Computed example of a mutant assay.
Amino acid sequence: MNASPDELPAASANLSRIDGSAGGRRHFRYFDYVMVAFVAILLLSNLIGASKLASLGGVTFGAGILFFPVSYVIGDVLTEVYGYANARRCVWAGFFALVFMAFMSFIVVSMPPADGWEGQSAYEAVFGSTWRIVLASVTAFWAGEFVNSFVLAKMKLMTGGKHLWTRTIGSTVFGQAIDSALFYPIAFLGTWTTAQVLTVMVTNWAMKVAWEAVLTPVTYAAVGWLKAREGVEVFDENVDFSPFAKTRAV
């Protein structure tokens, strides 16, 4: 008999409950792979789709939203399976990766083109993000991801590890509200009309929350698979939730 969705994440009697402090020091079998996937999706979403305004069926949205279905699952897995302390490491890894990507993009775009090469204008259009977009991307990512992880971790304690869907959707409501509220005004207010900024900001937030709801079965499957192989259930008790706290590794 199959377990109901609400039972899947914490149902296995083989999982040992540990607190977030112990989880932050523990070596996990698959954590590094999840972190690499998280950073890769983050960089691709900002490099390829962040500044394009698209429209389908009369609905206007930022094209970068195409990457978010995968990033949602990964972001939720990080905190749900590995705890806030490990999710914090991933957020900082993503933050510095974004900063490095922005710096190198600026250097490469600024280099004088070789004689006879006619692709400079196209290259600048694709990779020459303005300082506003860079600032918006880094700021929105940092704040939004920490809010998302914090809300999910706290809701896990409140629900006793049950009802995973409430915390994945609930954390997205808050985390992506912060992300959208920061990114679009910082990046485009004054370049786009105020109406466009507000429309895209609200539309993207609503679409991201909707995607999170749609992908709930995928999240359950990923979380269940990883927990079974890591062998522990992390509850973020005895954790410093400051973004700047340090976690010692064993």
Rank of each mutant, 00 (worst) to 15 (best):
N2P: 07
L15A: 09
L15W: 05
R17F: 12
A22K: 01
R25A: 10
R26E: 06
Y30R: 07
Y30K: 08
F31H: 01
M35C: 10
F38E: 09
F38T: 05
A40P: 04
I41V: 09
L43K: 05
L43A: 14
L43I: 11
L44N: 07
N46W: 01
I48F: 04
G49M: 06
A50F: 03
K52G: 06
T60S: 10
T60Q: 08
L66E: 02
F68R: 01
D76E: 14
V81N: 02
Y84W: 04
A85T: 08
R88W: 03
R88E: 07
C90H: 07
C90Y: 07
V91H: 08
A93E: 15
F96K: 13
F106W: 10
M111E: 10
P113F: 00
D115R: 04
E118G: 12
Y123H: 10
R132P: 02
V134P: 08
V138P: 00
A140E: 01
F146S: 02
V147L: 10
V151Y: 01
A153R: 00
K154H: 14
L157M: 01
K162V: 10
H163L: 13
L164F: 04
L164Q: 14
T168S: 11
T168N: 13
S171D: 11
G175E: 14
S180V: 04
A181M: 10
P185E: 11
A187I: 13
T193L: 11
V197G: 00
L198M: 09
V200M: 05
T203D: 00
T203K: 00
A206N: 04
E212C: 14
A213Y: 07
V214M: 07
L215T: 00
L215R: 00
P217T: 15
T219V: 15
W225K: 07
A228T: 13
V232P: 02
D236E: 15
V239I: 08
V239C: 07
F241M: 14
T247C: 15
V250T: 15
